[in-house]
Write a protein that binds this DNA or RNA. Structure first.
Lengths: 340, 340
DNA sequence: CTGAAAGCGCTTACAG
DNA sequence: CTGAAAGCGCTTACAG
């Protein structure tokens, strides 16, 4: 364990001042070429890296941003993380990741943690159970750059990156209708989250716009929008005796669960029931029949989120005003074998 | 934007010294009860949080650890992340996550990044292409606590958390043999990574231990161990005209790809060919037939990794010696429908 | 072109 | 029980 190399060390070795060493390393124009060369050579020789703690304290920046998501183990969110990390790193930022586990209380706590760590900015996708947004507005009050993505709140004035859930669900449902379905069930998410509501509304509008009858009995709730929820809802649907020829599920997982239940009941997909998922998770191409779905650009969303955050951080540093931007990303229908 | 609250601010408001304020907040025993109460009340009133940058500089600790994994978008690694984040947070640490994208060069760069950020410790799972380990030993040289998990190197003297890949692969192959398979193919990973080698060796040993003949022609390489690789290997296997009744694939993804190819060729799974995967990713229960596999405890591995790192960080802080520990986690066979 | 000095906000050994 | 002082390692406005 050797001693840490500091500016002071280099200065002493070279018999010059700490100030000059610091300036030389940062290529200040008021340092002679010869001095710069000598300092850089010595710094390299000693394998000098500036003490980040000291730099942070002086510059009041940590070059670190925080990210809060509901869950890490989730294809969509891990894609977002991927996009954020990639983009952040290219711009010299590191990313601290925390999860809210879909809990409002935990979400508040994680925000406080990030604030007390003095991250330069925060990106967040809200927990399903979050209804109140004071903790998010608090971030704005402290003048910390903030970007929300996917699960956002209209009540927080900050930059946002989203998809148009309503339009995407409309397209998905229309795809079912166009392929001949006339009685289409919908497995929706919980009542609270905005994207659960929006996907439901998109479904409903598509039904009504195309001369079909909206039947509330065909709506089932998948609280956790996962595989098991999809299974339960499909079982209930069958038990309820509803004759349907199409199903639009809020996630690929729920759709996969439903398809497997249909198979167990010898209901042919897509011949008897066509099934649409949502997200285009990896899973959708591996199941049989391969799942038709809506592609939700997670990686893109991550990249774009960091980009907006970066813009805002830069504006803050340079004391410029920054106006929040909302970016809506494109989704597209991916047709596979589960629909005609 | 209000002014930052500092110790100085509190001291001035109360007409006492900064030293006393600092000590009062940290419950030093040599501060009077009355003073402590007053200081705490004022701190609370002003919503004081210590400036983390200053604390870091003084204590030479950041209460932040770094994590480097090959890829974030990966069921197994995201489970590990989950375990690490959970455990870290409970102990007051935040986690910076970086990915190597299976690149040795990037892995080196990420390590340098974390070192220069002065994280208190590093956890890493090696990239497949990493053969040389100087950059890892460099972490040790700097006396930074280090834990390797899953993809480790024997050449780095540090704590490790792994599964016994060889034994797990042996059990998986034995499961196929016990269920009646006599000609078992193996889809292995690239030649370099240790766990690809170990799983292959476990497979080979099981074959030989049970009176079967090891046939190198039945070994196919899945470079990226993913769905498409599994598909290609299965297609090649069929084209090569090999008659097999069992397949042990290095990952669930590769197994899923193979199963789908078998289906397309009207080969019944498990009646004609039994298939074993490895990892117990979510996917394995959603495909048809549901995949028999080896459960690899990702969340557990993450928790244990942080736990060991934490121990080492504590030992370092208290200037105690710490001897590296290697922890081998249990795996288990999960029997589903793809095997008899 | 160079450097002395102040300061970022905290912690802690030391004196009283 | 309280506080003056040094110091963590850097940056930068200022003087020369």
């Amino acid at each position: 364990m050797m001693k840490e190399v500091t500016l002071k060390q280099i200065a002493e070795n070279l018999g010059i001042s700490i100030t000059t060493v610091s300036k030389a390393l940062k290529d200040y124009k008021d340092v002679s070429k010869a001095t710069k060369a000598a300092v850089k050579a010595e710094a390299k020789r000693l394998n000098f890296t500036p003490n980040a703690f000291a730099v942070n304290l002086r510059t009041k920046e940590s070059k670190t941003v925080g990210l809060i998501i509901p869950e890490v183990v989730h294809h969509f969110f891990s894609s977002v993380i991927n996009g954020i990390i990639d983009k952040a790193e290219k711009n010299g930022y590191l990313v601290i990741i925390l999860q809210s586990n879909e809990s409002y209380e935990l979400e508040k706590k994680q925000i406080d943690l990030l604030i007390s760590k003095r991250v330069d900015g925060i990106m967040i996708s809200m927990a399903n159970t979050t209804v109140e947004v004071d903790h998010l507005n608090h971030i704005r009050d402290l003048n910390i750059p903030l970007v929300m993505f996917d699960k956002i709140s209209k009540l927080v004035p900050c930059s946002k990156v989203v998809i148009n859930d309503r339009a995407a669900a409309y397209s998905a449902t229309k795809h079912l209708i166009d392929s001949g379905c006339r009685r289409i069930a919908h497995f929706r998410g919980a009542l609270l989250p905005q994207n659960s509501i929006d996907r439901f509304l998109g479904y409903k509008k598509a039904i009504e716009d195309h001369g079909l009858v909206f039947d509330p009995e065909l709506i089932y709730i998948c609280e956790n929008v996962d595989y098991d929820d999809g299974r339960s809802a499909a079982q209930k649907l069958i038990k309820d005796g509803h004759k349907i020829d199409g199903l639009f599920a809020i996630t690929d997982m729920a759709a996969a669960g439903a398809i497997n239940v249909f198979k167990e009941h010898n209901i042919a997909v897509p011949q008897e029931i066509s099934v649409m998922g949502f997200s285009n998770w990896f899973l959708s191409q591996a199941i049989t029949p391969a799942l038709s779905t809506v592609d939700q650009p997670g990686y893109e969303m991550g990249k774009k989120s960091f980009k907006l955050l970066h813009k805002e951080m830069r504006a803050k540093r340079e004391d410029r005003e920054f106006l929040p931007v909302t970016k809506v990303l494109e989704t597209k229908i991916i047709k596979r074998q589960s629909t005609n």
